[in-house]
Computed example of a mutant assay.
Amino acid sequence: MKLELIITRSVILVITGVTGTFINSIIVLLNFRFWRDVTTSKSYNRLLFVIGLTNTILQAHFIFDAILKIYSLYLLNENLLLCVITFGFTLVDVNIWNTTWLSLLCCVRLVNSSHCFYLKIKAKFFSSLPLLIVGSVLFAVTINLPLFWTTKLHIPTNTTDSPASGYFISLDAYYIIFSSLFGFSVPFCMTCVSIGFSISTLLGHIRRMEGSDSHLTSAQLQGHYRAVKTMVIRVFLDFLFFLIIVLGVSVPLIFNSTTYSVLWLAVLMYPTSQAFILVFGNPKLKSAVCGLMKC
């Protein structure tokens, strides 16, 4: 790899690594404190704590992966690459499932219904949320473990035909379809449905309040609109990241070093982007983070 490219990627790695780790660590610490506060919602803060912790681990994983990739250390040990790929895909799937649980949590808190079946589901969801989080982690590990045996590393003998990373990665097509279906498509659809219900509830509430004589301030309206915008941005980010992963394993694009660098940067920014969405979509987190940054 050229020296200029190594320097550029190292600078990008430092900036994204420091920013993402700092913001996500603050989210973890603040939600652990909110978690212990009896005046706050424990389920919501526990889930934000898990999401922040997963993002922090994912950010550290991306930093470790980028260091090995920049200095071509993967070429020394193929098993190291296989372990990093398996662990990385597992963390991404866990992150996507955590997003699903967060959207479902917001949905059951926003949607009002007096139907007995809905009330039973709502009560069951709150009590089963810790088990759902642990279950999604075990499920992600199970469906991604075969990556260690199905992924192959190919080092081209002709250096002129080498991709930007210096090697080719071949994944089993049937496994990719299976993993994409249960690791992304299913939770993504659940997230979209729950966000759709949440948005329709919020917009209906806004229309009712605007059409009534109640004293709804502009700050309250802005809070509702911010919640809608945060949900839409969050689901768009997951879809964009999945698209980037698909493009990243495309062989024709890997030959283009510029395209590869852009995709690599987008992957590094994923945990950081999630952290900013969580912070600016939560007034309590936003005020706490701003207060810490001022200090």
Rank of each mutant, 00 (worst) to 15 (best):
55 N>E: 07
196 G>D: 05
172 D>R: 02
80 L>Q: 03
56 T>V: 07
224 H>Y: 15
270 Y>M: 05
160 T>N: 11
55 N>I: 01
82 L>Y: 09
225 Y>D: 02
44 Y>N: 03
64 F>H: 09
93 D>M: 03
97 W>F: 14
175 Y>K: 05
288 A>V: 10
54 T>M: 03
202 L>F: 12
182 F>N: 07
177 I>N: 05
175 Y>W: 15
80 L>S: 08
236 F>R: 01
153 L>K: 11
59 Q>W: 00
117 F>N: 12
232 V>F: 08
100 T>K: 03
95 N>A: 07
100 T>C: 13
8 T>A: 15
244 I>M: 03
37 D>G: 04
220 Q>G: 12
247 L>H: 01
94 V>D: 03
275 A>Y: 04
58 L>C: 09
239 F>A: 13
219 A>H: 10
169 I>H: 00
93 D>T: 08
270 Y>D: 12
94 V>T: 12
189 C>L: 15
188 F>T: 10
277 I>P: 00
19 T>Q: 06
80 L>M: 13
76 L>N: 11
222 Q>D: 11
219 A>M: 02
152 K>V: 09
169 I>W: 00
230 T>C: 11
18 V>T: 14
62 F>W: 13
91 L>S: 02
25 S>A: 14
254 I>Y: 08
234 R>P: 00
69 K>G: 11
81 L>C: 07
280 F>W: 07
51 I>E: 01
66 A>N: 15
157 T>D: 13
178 F>I: 10
27 I>N: 01
19 T>H: 07
65 D>P: 00
280 F>R: 02
160 T>M: 14
61 H>G: 15
119 L>N: 11
41 S>R: 02
149 W>I: 06
164 A>C: 11
158 N>H: 03
190 M>F: 14
98 N>V: 00
218 S>L: 10
71 Y>I: 08
22 F>S: 07
205 H>D: 09
107 C>L: 08
117 F>M: 09
123 A>S: 15
179 S>R: 14
265 L>N: 09
224 H>R: 03
30 L>Y: 11
83 C>M: 08
209 M>W: 06
254 I>K: 10
134 V>D: 01
40 T>K: 15
250 S>R: 14
130 P>W: 05
280 F>E: 01
173 A>L: 04
183 G>P: 09
157 T>R: 07
130 P>F: 09
258 T>W: 06
233 I>Q: 03
129 L>W: 03
186 V>C: 04
192 C>K: 08
53 L>D: 03
8 T>N: 06
193 V>N: 02
161 D>T: 11
230 T>R: 04
144 N>M: 06
257 S>K: 13
254 I>D: 06
29 L>G: 02
30 L>A: 11
274 Q>D: 14
122 K>Q: 14
232 V>C: 02
80 L>A: 11
48 L>A: 06
294 K>A: 13
155 I>A: 09
12 I>Q: 15
25 S>P: 11
13 L>N: 10
170 S>Y: 11
9 R>G: 05
231 M>G: 14
137 V>H: 09
262 V>P: 00
49 F>K: 00
2 K>C: 13
89 F>N: 13
91 L>A: 12
191 T>E: 09
163 P>C: 10
162 S>T: 09
59 Q>I: 04
160 T>H: 07
23 I>N: 05
58 L>R: 04
93 D>Q: 07
184 F>I: 14
49 F>S: 02
159 T>R: 13
187 P>H: 04
93 D>P: 08
227 A>D: 09
241 F>N: 04
